[in-house]
Design a protein around this nucleic acid. Structure first.
Length: 111
DNA sequence: CCTGTGACGTCCC
DNA sequence: TGGGACGCCACAG
């Protein structure tokens, strides 16, 4: 459709990533790579970049997206890792003493 | 137009 | 078993 190829399938890659993030049910978490794959196999970094570009109040549960280690990736600018962990705990997600989440238990989709 | 960077992931040692 | 290095794709300047 689009000769330019600026977007994939007519939708912005970001919109597709956000759509996948919205699909994450409350009390569950997903990884960047997982979302990237579901979004079309793009690089996991693009998911992180999309999250970074995600404006607050967008309605996207970005906090449910963590890295494959089950740990909240340290961001370059601004704080939020602490807030992110806090929000996940509010949703009913338990963190390990190491500050990690058990993807085997909270990972979505289920392994 | 080209370069740098980034909320990551996987391979190799 | 853990740590280090490379690769990935997209966006901004």
């Amino acid at each position: 459709m689009n000769s330019h190829g600026s977007d994939r399938c007519g939708n912005s890659l970001y919109a597709r990533i956000y759509a996948q993030v919205r699909r994450i049910p409350r009390g569950r978490v997903s990884t960047y790579g997982r979302i990237a794959r579901l979004a079309g196999g793009c690089g996991a970094r693009q998911v992180g970049y999309a999250m970074a570009a995600l404006p607050m109040g967008s309605g996207v549960p970005w906090q449910r997206v963590i890295n494959y280690k089950g740990e909240i990736s340290p961001r370059k600018h601004g704080d939020g890792a602490g807030s992110q962990r806090r929000c996940l705990e509010v949703e009913g997600i338990c963190f390990t003493p190491q500050g990690r989440v058990d993807l085997k238990r909270y990972g979505w989709p289920a392994y």
